[in-house]
Each structure stands twice: as structure tokens, then as C-alpha cells.
Design a protein around this nucleic acid. Structure first.
Lengths: 349, 349
DNA sequence: CCTGCATGAGAAAACCTTTTCCCAACCCGC
DNA sequence: GCGGGTTGGGAAAAGGTTTTCTCATGCAGG
């Protein structure tokens, strides 16, 4: 096997072990271990000498060995079916950040919508003795294509449908919608339309219901929301529906959109019709996707789901579960936040 | 410590070990191990009995123990400073996919631009005995904020500046630009302008040079490229510069843009001026960011950097390095691909 | 001087798997 | 019946660390 002749790791020397540190310091491995971990009893002089030796040798304990013994790997799995997607990114970053602080590393596992792949990943993680799993997805009303309900390690669901009895974290879509509509009302807008995505999404209904509720609470009549696709094109079409009819005095003075892409389509279509934003019509989007929200003319006020906070909270929840703290099962909703840019203007002229 | 009273893992029973399998099958652990791994010699009957027992008990070998022994963890680290970014996503997915097939898991490490965080992550990965590291970033002319040059494990750089002597994979920007310009030429376009991002990016020069080269090769004069920002707004401004001047016959009949956002700005601005795309002017973008390229009117023809292929190649390269196959150091450029939509039209009327 | 205890440090088991070496039994041919 | 080879399987070490136990020493008190 010629390929084995020169395995050629980049630099040959293997990591220094505790045994070598102990030998160099003239003590046993047991003493060395205790010295470095602040355990056991020994003279301050001995402890310091061992520590110094370890430092000099560049000793770093082998996590594999530690994990094997402690039955705790300081490693968690992050399962997602949305690697390409826009939502999982900030979420993953949040999870990762929360855990890095505690010295925990994250396995990234992309399962797409493949059962087999999901199974594979979960088994690999279990074999590697992850301490827990965070499951995230691209929509909160769908399950991941893999069953995590009977694992022997804790699981936290973030932005995906949790199994019954598990702990799940999602954004408070209704609250976010309220934020938007109430913002319009504060600015004096009264005829507030709602243009959103497909009816098959749970969030579409949650947001629409909140929109209706706020209007009703303020004595205003709500028309039917306009449901379509999550696209700019649908934003264009919706403007045609809303502003194409006669009766200029019936036109909305505000449009609350189900996402930023729709909002962009709406803004573009309004401009093309000569309707001014925000003077004539205010627009609010959802998601606060900066690349979109900052490119619209004018820049788009939008509801931010605080996904990275959501991820962080998920990470922390998992950690406390791993530490044996019982957590209340059920879905916890985290508040959204309104990011105000220029598409709503000030109070009406 | 009341919190330790009930550590309460979700389900109490620990994983079944090889020892238990061996006991249940009435053999020694050595024999059990060999039976399951297809090693050693024993009667077919014995081997089968052990396998069956293991299956029944749901035995899965403890990766930690295996890794400790084999000095190979089947784990690699993925270091990025672009968790939120658009480039790292497909890249990460590609790396992950390539490795999952070989039973290798990926640690996701987001270092942003933080030296300290980078150091922390690298040390954590080393401690966990990753077999290698893939380093990726958001631009190919910048180093990650961390030094990976003297690690004892192999490192592959993808879409980020490699250390000297290391193996790096990047997209062939010049080739991608050629693809675009040659496409224009094939369609009969002759006055091809180039609008790109800031001069501080190496890719800006690579693409501009290729643009110049192709024009020269075809006996056409190249003006100066218009350099600005990676934004839609700059696309608008560039149109003003290109089409604002008199001499309609001097107007370009094609604009090759440095990215899709610029291209979108260009297309929008052209429409606002009443200049038709693609009839009057063809537009090509770069990046093939579908969310942008499919939303422009008309949909945008764009150069795709094949980032997920890049990621996959990086993963495979790392794997062969880990296996001791020496790899030629230096930067390898992977071809781009032109995704044709409708912003260039057919041959001119 | 002897008992008892605190102190400092080491031996060894444990975590779980793989692999090398070894041994007993059996079979073959002579 | 016996030497040599084969066959089936086990004992033990190794990997690196942590932790529990044990032990020797020295000192104080009686």
C-alpha cells in the first residue's frame, strides 16, 4: 500500500499527553490531572510547577478521552432542513453563539426533506454522543422529516413544529402583526389592507387574525386579507386588486405585507402607478430581510422576528435541559420587533 | 445541590455497550468486536449469533471510544466568517453533503471577524480532535481572522484567501466574466459596458480584466469599467452615467454587472427611462442569487459560481488530505456557469 | 513513645472499543 | 501416537483522562 508509506500529516508530532506532562514534571498522571483541574491536595509549589510544565509543553487535554469518561461531550447537534434558507441562518448563528460561550460545539446537519438523510444524521450524532439536539426548520407549522421524540437526549425545537410534550420556541407572529398595525394606527392611517402569502401557512392566518383583531379593537372594519404567494410578483398583482378599482377615496392608506418581498412588489407597483410611498400609502413588511428592506425605495419598515435571539434562547434552553434542569414543555413565543425605516412616513399631512 | 437530585435525562437507560452484547451472546468482548467488524476468524454461526444479539439490543458503537483508539474522529471543522452571508450557505451545504456521504460530521464555527473567537474555535476543534478544517469566508481576497498555517491537521481553503503553501479552491471569476461577455457577443451585442463593485475587491479587477480581454480579442474597444458599490442604488447611478449622456448611438447595447443587485438596479433604472430590456439593452448579472435574479423584470441571466460544487470539492479535497494523499498546494479555480434567463433576449432584431 | 490525624502524592479502576498476541483443541498425514 | 498446521476464541494492552482509594510521611497531643 504505497499510499500508506507516507501518511504525511501536515506536521508529524502528535499532541502532548497528560502522561508526558506528568513525566516532565516528575509526578504521576493522577497528580498532574488534579493539579491542572484544581482538584486534590498538593503543595502550591507542586501545583504551580505542573501547570508551568503543561504550559511550556503546550498541553491540551484530549476532549475525546474526557467525554468518554464524563459521559458528556460538550457537543450538540443542529438539525435543519433549510440550509439554503434565509431563516435558519440567523437562527443557527444564534444557537452557535449561545453555545460557544459555554464551550459547546455545534454539529451542523442539513437534512433537506430527506427521511433517510435525517435518520443518518441523527444516528451519527447519537453515536458521537452529542449532549442534545436543536431542531430548526423553515416554517413553524411543519415537522422535520425525522422523529426525535424518543431520543435519550434532550431536544429543543426552534422555528419548527415541535413534537408533543417537547419544548419549542417560535416567534410571536400575532404580536409582530399587532406591532405593525398599531404603528399604522398611531400614524393616523385608517384604511389598512393586508397582503400575505399562501393560505397553507399557519403564520399567514396568525398574522391576518392579529391584523383583524387590532382593527376591530379600534373600531375599524377589516376587509378580507389578500392571500397569494411570497413573491414580488404577487405584490404587484395585489396592488392592481387594491388600487385598480375606482373610488379613489376607498383606496387603502396603508398596506401591511406578509413578507418583505411582497412589500417590495407593492412599493414598486405603487410607484409605477404614481402613488407615493409613504405620503399616500404606508407600507410595512415582515421578516426584516435587510437586503430587501434596505433596497426598496423608500427603505422598508418591517417586522423583525429576532431569529438570532430565538436561536440563542433555544441554545440556552437546550443547555439547561442537558444540565438536568427540567423545562416546561410547550411552545414559547418570543416577541418580534418593529424596525422603522421610511416607508410609513410620519403622521399624515 | 438539589439540581443534581434528578438529572433526568429524557430517558434514563444508558446506551448498550459492546460488553453487554458480548455477555448476552456468551462471548468475550474481543470476539464480539471482531464479529461486528468482520474481522478475526470464527464460525459463521458464532458471528451471526453475535450480530443478531447486537441488533436485538440496538447496539451502536461509541464513536468517542473508537476515535480515541483510531486517532481519527470522523469529524471536521468548518470555519467561516460569513454565517449570515449569502455565499457561505451553498458552500457550507456542499461541504456538508460531501462529507456526510463518507460518515464525517461537520462542526460549524462562526468566527465573524473576531480574532479571539477564531482562536477559541480552532482550539476547541483541535481539542475535539477534528481530522481537518475547511476554512471559508465571504471574499476570496481576505484572510480569515485566524492563523491556520501551523496546525497539525490538514486545512483546505474555499472561497477565502489561503495561506501560502496551502490548498485553496476559488471560483474562476475571469472565466465567469468571459462566459457573460461571450454570450453577449454571440447574440450580436457590440457595445458592452461593465458596471461593478468597489475597486478594493480583487474579483472586481479579475472580472473587469476578463471583460476587457474578450472585447479586445474580438476587436472591440473597451471603455473604463464603472466601479461603485455592490448595491441596487449604484446600478441606478451607473445607468444615469451610461445613458444620461447624449448620443443615443453611443449607448451600450449590453451591460455586464458585477453582481445581481447592481443588475437589478440597472434593469429597474432602464425601465424607468423607457429603455427596453432585453430588446434595447441586454443585462447579465453575477452570483445568480435566485431571489434577485428571478424577481427582476425580465428575469436576469447571471453567472453562477457553483458554490455548492466548490464546497463539495473542498470537502473531498480535505478528505483525501486526511487520508494522507498529498495534494498539490496552490489555488485551484473552479469554473462558473451561465444561467440564461430572459434579460439578454435572442439575437438582435 | 505511641496513637491519631492531616497532608501530599501515587496506584489503579473506569470509560468503551480495537487489535495483537496467545492458547487450546482439533485434524491431517505419517 | 506424534509433530505440524489450522481453527475458534479469549486475554490483555492501548488510547488519554478523571476519580477514588490507599499509603507513607510528618507532626501534635497524650
Amino acid at each position: 500500500m504505497p499510499s500508506n508509506a507516507e501518511p504525511a500529516p501536515v506536521s508529524a508530532k502528535p499532541p502532548v499527553t497528560l502522561r508526558e506532562v506528568a513525566a516532565a514534571a516528575g509526578v504521576s498522571v493522577a497528580t498532574a490531572s488534579k493539579a491542572l483541574n484544581g482538584q486534590g491536595r498538593m503543595t502550591a509549589e507542586t501545583r504551580e510547577r505542573i501547570r508551568e510544565t503543561a504550559r511550556l509543553l503546550g498541553f491540551r487535554p484530549n476532549s475525546l478521552a474526557q467525554s468518554l469518561l464524563r459521559k458528556r461531550s460538550f457537543t450538540v447537534g443542529l438539525l435543519t432542513n433549510d440550509t439554503y434558507g434565509r431563516f435558519s441562518l440567523p437562527l443557527m448563528a444564534g444557537v452557535s453563539d449561545a453555545l460557544v460561550d459555554k464551550g459547546v460545539s455545534v454539529f451542523l446537519c442539513n437534512v433537506e426533506d430527506d427521511q433517510r438523510l435525517g435518520q443518518l444524521h441523527v444516528e451519527a450524532m447519537l453515536d458521537k454522543r452529542v449532549d442534545g439536539i436543536v431542531a430548526t426548520g423553515k416554517r413553524i407549522d411543519r415537522h422535520l422529516p425525522v422523529d426525535l421524540s424518543n431520543l435519550r437526549i434532550p431536544v429543543v425545537y426552534a422555528f419548527t413544529q415541535p413534537d408533543p410534550g417537547a419544548v419549542g420556541l417560535v416567534s410571536d407572529d400575532a404580536g409582530g402583526a399587532r406591532l405593525a398595525v398599531e404603528h399604522f394606527l398611531r400614524l393616523g392611517r385608517r384604511r389598512i389592507a393586508h397582503v400575505s402569502g399562501p393560505a397553507s401557512f399557519a403564520v399567514v392566518h396568525a398574522r391576518a387574525q392579529a391584523w383583524r383583531d387590532v382593527l376591530k379593537e379600534n373600531g375599524l372594519a377589516a376587509s378580507e386579507p389578500l392571500l397569494g404567494a411570497w413573491s414580488e410578483a404577487w405584490g404587484h398583482d395585489a396592488v392592481e386588486k387594491l388600487f385598480g378599482r375606482a373610488g379613489r377615496e376607498e383606496w387603502p392608506d396603508a398596506v401591511f405585507c406578509g413578507n418583505d418581498q411582497i412589500a417590495r412588489g407593492v412599493i414598486d407597483a405603487l410607484r409605477e402607478r404614481g402613488i407615493r410611498v409613504p405620503e399616500d400609502v404606508g407600507v410595512i413588511g415582515f421578516d426584516n430581510w435587510e437586503i430587501v428592506a434596505e433596497a426598496t425605495r423608500p427603505p422598508l419598515t418591517s417586522v423583525d422576528m429576532n431569529l438570532s435571539t430565538l436561536g440563542r434562547e433555544a441554545g440556552l434552553a437546550l443547555l439547561s435541559l442537558v444540565d438536568g434542569q427540567p423545562a416546561a414543555p410547550g411552545i414559547r413565543k418570543l416577541p418580534c420587533r418593529l424596525v422603522v425605516r421610511q416607508s410609513c412616513g410620519g403622521p399624515p399631512e
